[in-house]
Nucleic acid binder design. Structure first.
Length: 920
RNA sequence: GGGCGAAUAGCUCAGCUGGUUAGAGCACCUGCCUUACACGCAGGGUGUCGGGGGUUCGAAUCCCUCUUCGCCCA
């Protein structure tokens, strides 16, 4: 699709909407994002593989700006490596998200007045499936809108048949290795979702509650009682003891005595256990083994009964081992209502000693925010210690680095104290636990394929476990299950291990750490060498963006209004390593102006180029002899090389051979630095200086015009390449309009630039820039109207200065245009004039009769003189200090000496100037 | 309660292993429709680098301490 428009028909503002969709479709059609396993060096190919697996969003999710940030980071890396010549694979996909998705569908059912139980398990699962098929995966389509260059032919889903097989395979392996077991213990239970949760899924939040002090009378000694302090009085019906510290003198004589549990009127013993914190509350703790994990441990140590006193929905009810504990008046009452009733009863019975406000952390369900109820039950667990040890080692020895570095400490801390992982969920949506039990012989076993008869007794009445697996039990296989594991596939050989894992720090434990464990357990190799944890998008009050707060930003709306490139550039520019990105949801215009403005600027540079350079062929950059290059050419080419080198440092290295060395461990991944460097080059160097300098050359003819055209195209082309990973659409659409464009090629597949050796002479253009800047400043200082032409007399006090002055006259036309100032070699006439010193002793004198008055000029120069003198004095002080010259590195001292010479000459010059003007 | 981090311009942040006259974007002020661009151009820094102490020839940078925020874990 060569542009039919002529340059002056290109609109002055980049129209993102008109460009992006068709461009994306073209990329996809041409297979630009497709990875070829055979080309990976691991498969005998000629390209290093570079692989990222997407953190799979929930299948029901809609794109929010957090996904936008996360995906843009990945896309920048992936596009960069693709241009750098790697065989790049970005694996996209979604997560079935057990609890979350089941909740969504249950809500839909509720609107129809139904529950999942009404439908029954099979029908419910079918219902979820069809819901997911119809509405699911929209987020993957939305990712295309922001330019994500994933290989869609490899789209994965955690509940697909292929990935389900991977889940089953690892379950069986772990089961057979005795790393999965069934445990009877207190777990976190969500009474709304009606399922157990892992430790990580039960989130803490600080709450101000109450600490109730309740008196338990001593049986047979009406004068005595023990006061216990509790934050959860409703659980007292499940109390089986009161524990005190064995060395606590207050209670020592009561150990072994019995107490009367109020309300329930049960007798319970006083026991001694050093777990009790004497300083907390009254130093006496009620022990409720079935409803508190610590009490459960105490109960086990003392062989106490463990009565459950709540139904799964957290209404009060007799449960296991609790016959008769819950009075009829409380049965069926919700736990917090029951709490109020019980507190009232205790008060009326005189058992409530006091109530004090109490700050403590209450755990909530990470999916529905319901207060979690600790509950004794049978669950499946993964034994973590054997899996954690190698995962810990991998980070410690540098095979994996975590950025920002400080998160490594968090990771190590967590893995060091890791607890077993509860993987069973009492849900219907998910991978069903592949364990069957034979009712005839009680044989229990995990099967890779559904069994028809018991392997031990041949019975055929096998029953499968009712529970499903934690969603994260499928996610932790993601880096290799998406590549075909457990089969030995070409993809797996070509693309495992992957390279960088990009995600938010919140799921370091949920997901990242477990992937490392699974990768090492199954593949004996780390799943990636770099974990990049990015910040969170927040609003102007630094609040996380969320649906409930209504402070979210819809990335698709941003794409509509400003373009995907504007969204991406703005996000990347604000992406300091691990730093949160602040955006104002109330003012999208302001938030995304930087990206939008820059996209337009780029567009206009392109527009200018196309107008001036035209469509006629340009010389190949390589064919231009160095002698044909002007100072400006040399300068911009050097700036380009610097920019390329800086971008490379900002992004890379992409990988290392072996573990990360100390020096490289924190290197690269500075996406904000990459964005800023590329922006600075294109805008502040190319557009502000080189394009301006090239204008007059383009108006001319002959060889120099051709050189200018070629350099302009080359340099802009290179700039587009540097920016393409961040702003793929506008850069691609400009790139294909360049006269050097070859049909059928894509910027997305063009070579990443490499820096060239510095050309001599580039610094001569700096003198031109200095002269222009100086005149502009004088014009502003003296408020010379822009329309008014002025002249400057160039004064060269010595031979060096004369040589430099020649340079200025050589570029006199450029200076005249950019500074609106004509250069003259004649001595300045007498009278009021503005004076400026340039480097190398050069001097400009601007006779401005009627504008400059002598006194003002003296004041201005005087102020400059004072400032310079001050700095020079400090510098001289340093240089005359023997401690400095003796201890500081010699090259620094030498540099300071050079500076001293320059400053001294400058000050002397300024002084004589002031003297000439008649200053005291 | 334990651990980690941050504090630099009005706002959001760079400033790596100590050595430029402390920077960028946005905002702001002044002047400009200079034939690519007003989503732009030119000029302007508006700062006790959170407070105090220390190490050093030299501290925004290293150490101690205090204050204020934030995050993770129990």
């Amino acid at each position: 699709m060569t542009p039919p428009e002529t340059p002056d028909e290109i609109p002055p503002h980049y129209d993102a909407a008109a460009t992006e969709r068709t461009l994306y479709e073209e990329w996809e059609r041409a297979g630009v994002f497709h990875a070829d396993a055979a080309r990976s060096t691991r498969s005998g190919g000629d390209r290093d593989p570079f692989v990222i697996v997407i953190p799979p969003p929930n299948v029901t999710a809609a794109l929010h700006v957090g996904h936008g940030l996360n995906s843009t980071v990945q896309d920048v890396l992936v596009r960069w490596r693709r241009m750098a010549g790697d065989e790049v694979l970005w694996v996209p996909g979604t997560d079935h998200a057990g609890i979350a998705t089941q909740n969504v569908v249950e809500k839909l059912l509720a609107a129809e007045g139904k529950t999942r139980q009404d439908l029954g398990r099979e029908a419910f699962v079918e219902r979820v499936k069809s819901f997911v098929t119809e509405t699911g995966g929209q987020i993957l389509r939305q990712l295309r809108a922001i330019g994500a260059s994933a290989d869609w032919t490899r789209t994965a889903y955690t509940l697909s048949p292929e990935l389900s097989r991977a889940v089953r395979e690892i379950f069986v392996r772990l089961y057979d290795d005795k790393l999965i077991y069934r445990g009877h213990r207190v777990i976190h239970w969500c009474p709304r979702c009606l399922t157990s949760l892992s430790d990580e899924e039960a989130e803490h939040s600080e709450t101000t509650g109450s600490l109730w002090h309740i008196a338990y009378p001593v049986v047979g000694d009406p004068a005595r009682q023990i006061v216990v302090a509790t934050t959860r009085p409703e659980t007292m019906l499940g109390d089986v003891a009161v524990a005190v510290h064995p060395d606590d003198d207050r209670y020592r004589d009561l150990i072994g005595k019995r107490l009367l549990l109020p309300i329930a009127n049960f007798e319970i013993p006083v026991i001694a256990d050093s777990y009790v914190d004497r300083a907390f509350g009254t130093g006496a703790v009620k022990i409720t083994p079935a409803h508190d994990p610590n009490d459960f441990e105490v109960g086990k140590r003392h062989a106490l009964p463990m009565p459950v006193i709540m139904a799964p929905d957290a209404t009060m009810a007799d449960g296991a081992d609790s016959a008769g504990r819950v009075p009829a008046t409380l049965r069926g009452i919700e736990r917090f209502a029951a709490r109020r009733m019980m507190v009232a009863q205790l008060e009326s019975e005189g058992r409530l000693v006091k109530v004090e406000p109490h700050q403590h952390a209450v755990r909530h369900c990470y999916r529905c925010d319901t207060v979690v109820e600790p509950r004794l039950s049978d669950q499946w667990f993964v034994k973590m210690a054997p899996l954690a040890a190698p995962a810990l080692e991998a980070v410690k020895d540098g095979r994996i680095r975590i950025l920002p570095e400080r998160h490594e400490a968090v990771y190590i801390n967590w893995l060091t104290g890791i607890r077993d992982w509860n993987i069973s969920r009492q849900l219907w949506w998910g991978h069903r636990i592949p364990v069957w039990r034979c009712p005839d012989c009680s044989h229990e076993k995990a099967y890779r394929d559904d069994p028809t008869s018991c392997g031990q007794c041949g019975g055929t009445a096998l029953q499968q476990d009712e529970d499903v697996l934690d969603t994260w039990f499928s996610s932790w296989l993601w880096p290799f299950s998406t590549l075909g594991w457990p089969d030995d596939t070409a993809d797996q050989r070509a693309f495992y291990p992957t390279d960088v894992l990009v995600t938010a720090p919140e799921i370091l434990f949920f997901w990242v750490a477990r992937m490392i464990m699974a990768g090492l357990y199954v593949k004996k190799e780390v799943p990636f060498h770099t974990v990049y944890l990015h910040g969170t998008v927040r609003d102007m009050q630094h609040r996380k963006m969320s649906k409930s707060l209504g402070n979210g930003i819809d990335p698709l709306q941003v794409v509509d209004e400003f373009g995907a490139d504007a969204l991406r550039f703005t996000l990347m520019q604000g992406m300091g390593l691990g730093v949160d990105v602040m955006l104002d949801p109330a003012d999208l215009e302001k938030s995304f102006a930087p990206g939008r403005n820059f996209a337009t600027k780029l567009w206009n540079i392109g527009r200018f180029l196309l107008m001036q350079v035209g469509a006629e062929p340009v010389r190949a950059f390589e064919s231009i002899p160095e002698t044909a290059l002007t100072n400006a050419d040399r300068w911009i080419l050097n700036r380009l090389s610097t920019a390329i080198a800086e971008c490379d440092v900002a992004l890379g290295p992409a990988r290392t051979a072996g573990p990360w060395s100390e020096g490289l461990r924190v290197a690269g991944m500075r996406l904000d630095a990459h964005a800023e460097t590329a922006r600075r080059f294109v805008w502040n160097e190319l557009a502000d200086w080189y394009v301006e300098a090239a204008k007059s050359r383009l108006l001319g003819s002959g060889d120099d015009r051709e050189v200018a055209r070629a350099i302009l195209v080359h340099v802009f082309d290179q700039g587009l390449r540097l920016l393409h990973p961040i702003m793929p659409f506008v850069t691609e659409s400009l790139w294909r309009r360049l006269p050097t464009f070859e049909a059928g090629t894509f910027l997305a597949r063009a070579n990443w630039p490499t820096p060239a050796p510095a050309l001599s002479g580039g610094e001569r253009f700096d003198l031109i820039r200095e002269a222009i800047g100086t005149v502009r400043q004088l014009r502003a200082d003296y408020s010379i109207p822009p329309g008014q032409k002025i002249v400057a007399h160039v004064v060269s006090p010595d031979a060096t200065a004369k040589a430099r002055a020649a340079l200025l006259f050589h570029e006199a036309a450029l200076i005249a245009r950019m500074a609106r100032c004509e250069l003259l070699s004649t001595p300045a006439p007498g009278g009021a004039a503005a004076h400026a010193l340039l480097s190398h002793g050069l001097e400009l004198v601007l006779p401005l009769a009627g504008v400059v008055d002598l006194q003002k000029e003296i004041t201005r120069l005087g102020a400059e003189h004072v400032a310079l003198s001050k700095q020079l004095d400090a510098l001289r002080g340093r240089l005359s200090n023997e401690k400095f010259t003796g201890k500081a590195p010699p090259e620094l001292v030498e540099a300071e000496r050079t500076k001293e010479r320059e400053w001294t000459a400058r000050r002397d010059q300024m002084q004589s100037k002031l003297h000439d003007l008649g200053a005291a």
